[in-house]
Amino acid sequence: MLTGKQLKIKRIMLDIKAIHIAELLEVHRSYISILESGKQNIPLHIRTKWESYLNKREEEMN
């Protein structure tokens, strides 16, 4: 499982905006910032969907 910081780095490397992740996860953009900064633990259901999406996008790019 990736940390919030690792998710942010991967998101940026894939050129995905935080607002897009927020819309995907049906949360506010500021909540993504809180999670990526490590100020709050990422709930499992959110982490699973988030990581799955980033992995899928990464595979599409290869």
Rank of each mutant, 00 (worst) to 15 (best):
I34E: 05
H45I: 06
S37C: 05
K8L: 11
S33L: 04
N41Y: 07
I16R: 06
I19T: 12
I42F: 03
I16C: 09
M13H: 07
E59F: 12
G38R: 01
A22D: 03
Y31K: 15
K49I: 07
R29K: 14
V27G: 12
E23C: 04
I34H: 05
E59M: 11
G38M: 00
I32W: 00
R47G: 03
K5C: 11
R57I: 14
E60Q: 08
E60T: 05
Y31F: 07
E26P: 04
L54N: 04
I19Q: 12
L54W: 00
K49M: 08
E51I: 10
Y31T: 15
R47F: 08
L2T: 15
S37Y: 02
N55D: 09
I42W: 01
L7I: 09
T3S: 13
Q6F: 00
Y31H: 09
P43M: 03
E60K: 07
P43G: 07
I42C: 02
S33F: 03
P43A: 09
E23Y: 08
E36F: 01
T48G: 00
Q6P: 11
M13P: 01
W50L: 07
S52F: 11
K5Q: 13
A22I: 01
E58N: 05
L25D: 04
R11A: 12
K49P: 01
T3N: 03
E26L: 04
E51H: 02
S30E: 04
G4C: 03
Q40H: 12
K49Y: 05
I21H: 03
L35A: 06
I42A: 02
M13N: 15
I32L: 01
L44F: 10
S33N: 06
G4L: 01
K56E: 07
I12T: 14
E59V: 13
L2V: 13
I21N: 07
S52M: 11
